[in-house]
Design a protein around this nucleic acid. Sequence first.
DNA 1: AGAACATAGGAACCGCCGTTCCGTTTGTCA
DNA 2: TGACAAACGGAACGGCGGTTCCTATGTTCT
Lengths: 196, 196
Amino acid sequence: MSATVGSGERPLRADARRNRERIVAAASAVFAQHGSVAQIDEIAARAEVGVGTVYRHFPTKDALMGELVRQKFERLRDRAIRFQEVADPWEALAGMLRESAEEMEHDQTQRRMMWEASPAAVEIGAPARQELQREGGKLVARAHEAGVLRRDFTVEHIGPFMCGLGSAMEMLQSRGERTDDWRKLLEVFLDGLRPR
Amino acid sequence: MSATVGSGERPLRADARRNRERIVAAASAVFAQHGSVAQIDEIAARAEVGVGTVYRHFPTKDALMGELVRQKFERLRDRAIRFQEVADPWEALAGMLRESAEEMEHDQTQRRMMWEASPAAVEIGAPARQELQREGGKLVARAHEAGVLRRDFTVEHIGPFMCGLGSAMEMLQSRGERTDDWRKLLEVFLDGLRPR
DNA sequence: AGAACATAGGAACCGCCGTTCCGTTTGTCA
DNA sequence: TGACAAACGGAACGGCGGTTCCTATGTTCT
């Protein structure tokens, strides 16, 4: 998806497309491990490609980061859509949050992208973020209609909360102890979300 | 406090002590604004002092950051002590958390120190952190005894939670909208902390 | 096959920032 | 007040890492 097929642009040459994919995959792995301090050289090396090639595809480190941010949001959006199938309105919302959190545990990019990504990168991901917002909104609306969710809670609260949860994970992991205490925080929060 | 009066060391010269204080104050302001990417040059300029002078007092940027981290923890510890005066056990705990959060809103160092400070800086703050843990523990214990706090919640959960709340603030501020939605997150969490 | 143009590679460049170094200034104490 | 050590200032250093640039290598189309 996304990758190529620009409007007036001619399609990428076969090797170019292959390299682009390798670069994105490598970047994903390296950013997941090191966050935004990941170095272009390392990404290029992992993709078995020269730095110049990375810059041929992404004019800037931020552009590359932005592409990843977009993919993360798309992934989250797809999950939100998937959880609309769940019958119980509360379990649909809670399930999505739980599953997203589980995934975030292993992906530093996802944990940090909200506050560590540069404005440029954030902007690239903005459209995908809006779609996520829309799909997540449906889960929230359904829970409200069923009366199983605190009245004053809206979709807009989810982003900051997940961001916070990610940074709690970060702290626990860096300290290396009780690394799954974040699950307790999530459950406390979910309990707090039930109507009073 | 703290500053000088080493065991075998002779006291600092008057101007040196004055400068040390100016540096710490400047660093506090600059770190609060820029987080750990703050530059030594800017701190020196704000303190109206040469860079060399900064390095005379703190061998490393991390050492300076560490000093600030220590001060932040001391401040938090003092607050925990202060809230032990509050009669209602629940309000004592919740009040401390609320007040700490309010302060964090204006201090990027405090928001980020948990996960952005280098290991060296963290270590400098470690003793103060332990004291905070101890004092906070008293508030938690009192709430448990009174049966007004979820059984499975411990002091160790507070740090990661506050860290998460800080990063939610970060995100909201950087986006520049709904900058006080973090209060809702805090209230939801506090509700979740009541016994089931 | 071979011209023509896209793409790759990676050494070199450049600016940024923490840190060092040393000549100068200032406080202290006799 | 004079001498000496302590402290200061800020230009210069060094390394790191994002970005550029130019040559080499493929790919595609006739």
